[in-house]
Simulated scan of single mutants.
Amino acid sequence: MSRRTMLGAIATSPLWMQSAWAQPGKLKISHQFPGGSIAQGDFRDRLCRMFAADVERRTRGALKFSIYPGSTLMGANAQIPALRSGTLDMALVPLSYAGAEAPEANIGLMPALVTSYEQGFGWKNAPVGRELTRILNDQGLVIVSWIWQAGGVASREKPILYPEDVAGMRVRGGSHEMDRLLADAGATAVSMPSNEIQAAMRSGSLDAALTSSTSLMSFRLQDASRALTTARGGAYWFMFEPLMMSRTVYDRLSKPQQAAVMAVGAQLEAFALKSARADDAAVASVYRARGAQVVDLNADALRKWQAIARTNAWREFGERNGNCARLLELAEQSIVVI
């Protein structure tokens, strides 16, 4: 058989057609949240497991995944640098955790900039979302699933409703700009990942914490709290917490594999939205059952928080660099004035 004949036979064989999928590989997905199963547990862990199962099915086993919940693979703050370097394949992680190295990331937890799920999830196909995708791609990150979560406030003593309620308290915000908001309201801002909040509240080194409704339950903050402000009546704390892939890893995948990853990621966004909303409602019952005082944020309080955020947090973010200025300009096109 001539070389040309042999190559022609290979090119038309089923085995050659299957080679559009790369050789079998096992990718690691890291997150800081409690582990569970596809059917039960923290919805962010469930989403990772659903993603892994569906992509494996679509790629006929060419891509397989190992899930590492609860920071068992690496610390929460180490995940985004590891994604950028290609030493971690995937992570579901709050984007604002990258804010110290890449200030643009703090657009994902900008106080009172996003005040509804419709607004947050609408970013994906809006100019602000396309610009954020471009910036993160340049920084070595690929957004696979857009996930937004509303958050509330757990407090060791009293409910936190209006800005003046945090005066003199030590409060965890979750991003540089959220910390600035708290400082402007008279609090001492404390920085830490969400999986460290409960221990800090138990020890008394933290008086209150803002985090997602899901984390308020998953990390059992009700065991260290006497009061809760829910997101049911609105929220000035909306976090962008995407499932991301290292661009280095993504670029190594075949085109069909890339398509499978992105298609499954997009389909799971509906699950994320439904689950986040369900947790906003469920958290009130969980805390009330432990005897905590439960209040809902109201429009008047939200207006006051937004007014403070505009004064310094938004302005300072926009002044950090050209990317930040552009992101803020585009985000304000979809802002809801309270």
Results as ranks from 00 to 15, higher is better:
58 R>W: 06
268 L>S: 05
218 S>I: 11
173 G>M: 03
267 Q>N: 14
236 Y>W: 12
314 W>M: 11
145 S>A: 13
113 L>F: 01
332 E>R: 12
116 S>G: 05
65 F>T: 01
271 F>T: 07
281 A>W: 03
74 M>Q: 05
104 E>S: 10
277 R>E: 12
27 L>P: 02
34 P>C: 11
274 K>H: 06
11 A>L: 09
125 N>T: 09
222 Q>Y: 14
35 G>S: 09
200 A>L: 12
294 V>D: 02
273 L>C: 02
318 G>M: 06
67 I>C: 09
299 A>S: 14
78 A>N: 08
337 V>C: 14
334 S>N: 14
312 N>L: 13
6 M>S: 13
89 D>T: 00
222 Q>V: 07
271 F>E: 04
83 L>T: 00
66 S>H: 03
37 S>Y: 01
34 P>A: 08
291 G>N: 04
266 A>P: 00
213 S>Q: 12
6 M>T: 14
155 S>D: 01
53 A>M: 10
192 M>D: 07
256 P>I: 07
326 R>G: 02
27 L>T: 03
10 I>V: 12
185 A>I: 07
66 S>E: 13
270 A>I: 10
305 W>P: 08
139 Q>A: 11
185 A>M: 00
116 S>T: 15
77 N>P: 02
166 V>D: 04
126 A>G: 02
263 A>G: 13
102 A>Y: 14
241 E>Y: 15
269 E>G: 05
206 L>E: 10
106 N>K: 07
233 G>C: 07
169 M>W: 10
265 G>D: 06
201 M>R: 09
337 V>T: 15
201 M>H: 11
307 A>M: 12
103 P>A: 12
83 L>S: 02
324 C>D: 06
330 L>G: 03
112 A>F: 00
263 A>P: 11
164 E>V: 11
67 I>Y: 06
138 D>R: 15
179 D>E: 10
236 Y>K: 11
291 G>D: 06
202 R>W: 07
276 A>D: 10
122 G>H: 06
230 T>G: 03
27 L>V: 06
191 S>P: 01
136 L>N: 10
329 E>N: 08
276 A>W: 01
145 S>C: 10
42 D>Q: 07
256 P>D: 04
25 G>N: 12
336 V>D: 15
237 W>G: 03
338 I>H: 15
297 L>G: 09
186 G>E: 04
53 A>W: 05
151 G>V: 02
29 I>S: 00
233 G>Q: 05
151 G>A: 05
253 L>M: 11
214 T>L: 12
142 V>Y: 03
232 R>A: 13
173 G>H: 02
32 Q>L: 15
